[in-house]
Design a protein around this nucleic acid. Structure first.
Lengths: 111, 111
DNA sequence: AATAATACCTTGACAGACGATGTACTGTGT
DNA sequence: ACACAGTACATCGTCTGTCAAGGTATTATT
């Protein structure tokens, strides 16, 4: 099973924030972390990823710095800001409420 | 709390199918039914609604007929088709899996 | 020397949600 | 009789997020 784009729309930002809450990371790695965590269900596409990074940076929810790799390609690391953490917490709460509302709207009463 | 647009994107169709699975209905009433069921969290907007009706009709998931109101404004009733019911069932299953994946991606392990 | 993998990034097209707006009829208060 | 709110239908144009396709550069493998 793969999660469709539209279904995820609106959650990518939160998914990225949560990912960074577990430690600084960089684009390519985050794609893999998220794929793994979702059991392969969510394969974030690169344009989606970098669009989100730009959005989150502009909103001051994350910032970034270049890693000093001795070998291999350069990496831009992203870091959660204080404001980003606050956003994450409120997004998590919103998810819990959304989940409950959608359960009521989509499923039968007795399940 | 109000569900934001992007969060719902991709679910409106399923929400409408589920609503019709409980009996034929018409636009205006469905908006109210859904608002009530979600505890006011989801106020479907009319352009969203009619765009969805067109989409679902085109896909053969619903069809419609004019009611014969003795008084009051005319109403276009919508009805779930066989194909629509099948889609609803698979959408419900998809939601359960999406919910689980998002739980893993958005929340901490111990909750 | 060619290929795959890692790692970054952008452009352009597409689809869904919705603010604004419009039509038409009914019911209510004055 | 008339204004106004409510019911009920519908569309246009804008905005936003996603992604297929494409591009650059470095390192590892064959």
């Amino acid at each position: 099973m793969a999660l469709s784009a539209d279904i995820l729309r609106g959650y990518t930002d939160t998914i990225l924030l949560k990912c960074l809450a577990e430690g600084d990371s960089y684009g390519y790695q985050m794609v893999r972390q998220i794929a793994q965590k979702s059991g392969g269900a969510l394969q974030l596409k690169e344009p989606t990823l970098y669009t989100a990074f730009r959005r989150l940076t502009q909103d001051g929810l994350i910032d970034s710095y270049w890693g000093d790799e001795q070998s291999g390609a350069r990496r831009r690391y992203y870091r959660l800001t204080e404001k980003g953490l606050e956003r994450l917490l409120s997004d998590q709460q919103a998810w819990i409420e959304t989940r409950q509302a959608l359960d009521r709207l989509l499923l039968d009463e007795n399940e």
